[in-house]
Design a protein around this nucleic acid. Structure first.
Length: 260
DNA sequence: ATGACGAGCGTGGCTCGA
């Protein structure tokens, strides 16, 4: 089965690209981030008439996440536990039965955290602590579990073309990277690192300063796998050609192939 | 030359992102 994550930077602005990519790739489950749409304005009908099941957790103006799937989910949950007062729509997860296998897929849009020294950075770190606690809970269920999305964390120096440009950025702070490592230390596997030794596995290129033609990218979209999912891992793909399309998102899809 | 950003909201220019 193919499970994919993609920050599309606006589902209404990206509908043509989304449909083209779904046609080409035929994933089983797709997590979308930054849909920038309320649930009522999500282009549900255009997807449903092509056979996709759609689950959204939207928000006006920015943020927002969604799950698309060929099979209907068995159950869906919205919001990351641990902060009932948090109104930002950044987390949705669902359990699917694909073939004769059950899998839980979580789609997250982790806070950016810039600028440093503000409540935005502490919100990022608080959110990551909540994510760690939730991952701990899910790992205890011993179901194949895919925890994927836009993490807004550059894990290591080889995940960025120009590390020196990011030393004062929330995405590359020691605290952000340590929190990401804590997730891995729970027993999650970074699918791209496990399945590929390719260099420059970037997933984001800024719209500004010619970042794409210069390949000045960063790897911040990640797929983490529980042990029960990691043993199914067959391969990964970063669909970087999508960054060259008309009106692209600044992120590209990351796809994992799990033996179904 | 070393670069000119983009989406949403809502109509002018802000917020937000990475």
């Amino acid at each position: 089965m193919l499970v994919a994550t993609w920050n599309i930077n606006g589902v209404k602005a990206r509908l043509d690209a989304l449909l083209a990519w779904l046609d080409e790739r035929q994933p089983d489950v797709v997590g979308l981030q930054e849909i920038k749409s309320v649930d009522e304005q999500f282009p549900r009908a255009e997807l449903e008439k092509r056979g996709w099941h759609v689950e959204t957790h939207g928000q006006k103006g920015f943020n927002g996440v969604a799950l698309l799937s060929k099979e209907a989910p068995i159950r869906v949950e919205r919001r990351l536990p641990g902060a009932p007062e948090d109104e930002q729509s950044r987390f949705i997860e669902a359990v699917y039965a694909i073939g004769d296998r059950r899998v839980r897929v979580a789609c997250l849009y982790l806070p950016n955290g810039n600028p440093l020294g503000t409540e935005k950075f502490s919100y990022k770190l608080d959110w990551m602590a909540r994510l760690e606690q939730h991952a701990r809970t899910r790992l205890g269920e011993e179901l194949p579990f895919v925890l994927m999305g836009d993490y807004n964390v550059i894990p290591q120096p080889d995940d960025v073309r120009d590390p020196s440009a990011w030393v004062n950025d929330a995405l590359y702070q020691p605290e952000s990277r340590a929190a990401y490592r804590r997730l891995l230390h729970l027993g999650l596997t970074d699918a791209v690192r496990a399945a590929s030794d390719a260099p420059e596995t970037y997933t984001f290129w800024d719209y500004q300063a010619g970042s794409w033609p210069k390949n000045n990218g960063i790897r911040i979209d990640h797929v983490l796998l529980s042990p029960e999912a990691a043993i199914l891992l067959q391969g990964v793909s970063i669909d970087r050609h999508v960054r060259g399309w008309e009106k692209p998102s600044d992120h590209v899809p990351v796809v994992v192939d799990l033996r179904s």
